[in-house]
Amino acid sequence: MTEVDSTLGPSQNEVKTEENAPINVKVVSSTGDEVFFKIKRNTKLSKLQGAYAAKVGKDVSSIRFLYDGNRINEDDTPSSLEMEDNDTIDVMVEQVGGWAP
């Protein structure tokens, strides 16, 4: 289990309110490896995705982030997804099926 406590910076034109307090998010791969992030509620999750991809050495486009089964999009933020403190994000990799000659 790896533990990285990185606070991801705020995005531009962001209002400083109490609602924007940082929350802890756990990113879990299917092998059970966990990486922890601290992220402000109004910060785009794409930052977290980029940081995670860099950490595991993968291209962002090759991995999929799911929150409660839903794909996380570029513009999503913890508050838009109604995430709570200590919530979990699942990481999946591309799936294929068939055999191409």
Binding site: S30, V56, V91, W99
Partner: peptide, 28 residues
């Protein structure tokens, strides 16, 4: 290609029915 594919799928099934899919591989 159909026969090869069938053989491969059977091989995978025989090997272990609960083999981890790629989603379970360590990303690192």
């Amino acid at each position: 290609s159909y026969i090869d594919y069938q053989a491969r799928l059977q091989h995978l099934d025989d090997r272990d029915t609960l083999s981890p899919s790629a989603s379970l591989t360590d990303l690192r």
